[in-house]
Write a protein that binds this DNA or RNA. Sequence first.
DNA 1: CTGTATCCTAGATGATACTG
DNA 2: CAGTATCATCTAGGATACAG
Lengths: 91, 91
Amino acid sequence: MNLIGTKWKPLIMFHLLDGNLRSGVLQKHIPGISNKMFTQTVRELEKDGLILRKVYPVVPPKVEYGLTERGKSLETILRGLDDWGVKDSNS
Amino acid sequence: MNLIGTKWKPLIMFHLLDGNLRSGVLQKHIPGISNKMFTQTVRELEKDGLILRKVYPVVPPKVEYGLTERGKSLETILRGLDDWGVKDSNS
DNA sequence: CTGTATCCTAGATGATACTG
DNA sequence: CAGTATCATCTAGGATACAG
């Protein structure tokens, strides 16, 4: 549970459920996150083997993030949390 | 997501899934938690309407905790997290 | 038995500026 | 565009002692 025990990890993974995203795009999906926390968090997720980082050697730089198999195994839980959050806000 | 965004909230709720527990018993189920964090966390959960706190006016004092309906609505997610943690540790 | 109060530290998070 | 470095801050969390 230490793997998602941070303010941003679940959010970042959730936004990757629908497919890979470029660094900038992914970051825009997370309102309020600072550039520092974004980089730091994806690094940890990568280190934990939950997401994948692909670097394209082009200019301007292009980086994509996607879920690993292990990361995908959390899909049910991530969507569950989202559903709960949505439903709950109506109660 | 702020509702479970703490190191102990998910654990405490998970242990209440199988029924109400006395304060001391519940605390013993959470290895490593300090007395302070235990009290603080249950207070927050109670405030958020996720758990219930029943005080019996007897001596020695007796306090029980249990999930509210709202808390129970998280059962699927809580068990999902537990399952994932168990399975994952074998990979 | 249960809960509170205090002191204290490490880590998490932000803002900003800078590099390739 | 992507990422790093630095400085400053806030809060989670732990240890301990005390109270009803």
